[in-house]
C-alpha cells in the first residue's frame, strides 16, 4: 500500500531526470550541428583557406591567436 502511495513521486523523479538529461543531450547535439553548419557555410563562402591550411594545426592556432 505504501509503495503504491509513493509510486507517483518515484516516477516523477525519474521522469525529471530523463527530461533534464534529455535536454542536455539535445542542447549539445543541436548546438554541434549548428556550429558545424555555420563552419561549413563559412568555408563554402571562401573562408576555407584557414581551415584547409589548418590541416596542420599550427596555422589554425596562429589564426586564432591573431584574431
Amino acid at each position: 500500500m505504501e509503495a503504491i502511495n509513493h509510486l507517483p513521486f518515484i516516477v516523477a523523479s525519474y521522469a525529471a531526470a530523463v527530461v533534464v538529461v534529455g535536454v542536455l543531450i539535445a542542447w549539445v547535439a543541436i548546438d554541434f550541428r549548428a556550429q558545424r553548419r555555420a563552419l561549413a557555410e563559412l568555408e563554402m563562402r571562401g573562408f576555407a583557406r584557414r581551415s584547409a591550411a589548418a590541416r596542420s594545426d599550427t596555422t589554425l592556432a596562429q589564426a586564432k591567436e591573431q584574431a
Partner: peptide, 20 residues
C-alpha cells in the same frame, strides 16, 4: 567533452566571421 567540442567550434566560427 561534447560541450567543449561545441564551444571550440563556436569560437572558430566567431573568428572566421570576424575575419570575414
Amino acid at each position: 567533452i561534447a560541450a567543449m567540442r561545441n564551444e571550440i567550434l563556436r569560437r572558430r566560427v566567431r573568428t572566421l566571421r570576424l575575419m570575414q
